[in-house]
């Protein structure tokens, strides 16, 4: 009796502490690239000024009619092909986006069918933005840990450029449309998460006229021709939120792991804007060579920035298997989350 109790406790301990293993990441980049030259011409400014304000040289823009689910399906298809994945083993699909096909059914159901995945699969849509990647990993971790699934396909993709007003140079300079596919199984690494929410800041970054509250009107459509909604951002407020919240988030997740900055091999944060990342990096006292930034070549692709950065860092030889990597997502909501993975 006592022995079986011990065994139970051991098993409990074993199952309680697990993490996610990112097996593979694939990225889909739309063909159209918006350069600083394009923006400078359109908005009568200089490409140098645009780069100075954002730290971005180019962004990706989805083709007309190409929506979030199209991008993630292409990312997943290339993942299956390039990595010779047996897709019949995938039993949980998470689709993180704020641009869905329909109000119902869940877009992840449609993606299951389009990718030819098993029907013995759980599918969920995760309607999150900049914190979405960490949220998705947290969900994958919880499902894997509980034994409810064994292999997770986590897709991120957004089409922010379709909800930006044609005259909004600030948002046009920042956002980018990219899809990613992430294949996740469990690892024995003891992973922790921290999440936070402050809905009082929701008006500072919002896609207005996009759903039930403040629905689209004929007048609005005639005024701006934005049928999917209109993204509005109070950049100073968002900056204040990030500079206040993220350093504390970093300190809290380090504390949870009982790590110091030196124990983490690489820091990969949501690529919001270069200036914001630099302020956060300095405030957290993270050495520059451990802080991966690639916003220059990809822009801010909302929930895709972290997997795009992980993929890019690995390609550049900066990120290697076994490294301890801190991931932090923060933004629209306000919503934020962090974790440390063993890559």
């Amino acid at each position: 009796m006592i022995e079986s109790l011990h065994l139970c406790m051991l098993m409990h301990k074993f199952t309680l502490y697990m993490g996610v293993l990112l097996n593979h990441i694939a990225t889909y980049l739309p063909e159209t690239i918006l350069t600083n030259d394009d923006l400078a011409l359109q908005f009568n400014t200089s490409k140098e000024q645009i780069f100075k304000n954002t730290g971005i040289n180019k962004r990706y823009v989805s083709a007309r009619g190409e929506i979030s689910s199209d991008m993630v399906v292409k990312a997943a298809e290339s993942l299956f092909k390039d990595k010779a994945i047996d897709k019949s083993e995938i039993d949980f699909l998470i689709f993180c986006s704020e641009g869905f096909d329909h109000k119902g059914p869940a877009t992840s159901c449609l993606i299951q069918n389009r990718l030819g995945l098993s029907t013995n699969i759980a599918c969920v849509d995760l309607p999150y933005g900049c914190s979405g990647y960490v949220y998705g990993l947290g969900m994958a971790n919880a499902y894997l840990m509980s034994g409810m699934c064994h292999k997770v396909l986590f897709l991120t993709g957004d089409m922010a450029t379709t909800v930006i007003h044609k005259d909004d140079v600030e948002l046009k300079s920042i956002f980018s449309d990219i899809g990613t596919a992430n294949l996740i199984t469990k690892s024995s690494f003891n992973q922790h998460f921290i999440f936070g929410t402050d809905g009082s800041g929701y008006t500072n970054l919002i896609v207005d006229h996009s759903a039930s509250r403040n629905p689209q009107t004929i007048e609005k459509l005639q005024e701006n021709n934005m049928p999917l909604g209109h993204m509005k951002m109070q950049s100073t407020e968002i900056f204040l939120f990030a500079v206040k919240t993220v350093p504390k988030l970093v300190a809290d997740i380090l504390k949870k792991y009982e790590y110091g900055i030196d124990d983490v091999d690489l820091f990969v944060f949501h690529q919001a804007s270069y200036f914001m990342l630099e302020v956060i990096r300095k405030k957290c006292k993270i050495p520059k060579d451990k802080f991966f930034v690639n916003i220059e070549n990809f822009g801010n692709s909302v929930s895709s920035t972290i997997p795009v950065a992980l993929n890019d860092a690995e390609r550049q030889g900066i990120l290697k298997k076994g490294m301890k990597v801190m991931l932090a997502g923060f933004g629209i909501g306000y919503s934020w989350g962090a974790t440390i993975i063993e890559y």
Binding site: K52, N53, E170, T236, F239, V243, F275, M276, V279, K283
Partner: peptide, 15 residues
């Protein structure tokens, strides 16, 4: 002057 400078002030004072 651009809104970027407001962010520079915030960051300077904070740091």
């Amino acid at each position: 002057w651009s809104s970027m400078y407001a962010l520079i002030i915030i960051a300077f004072v904070d740091a």
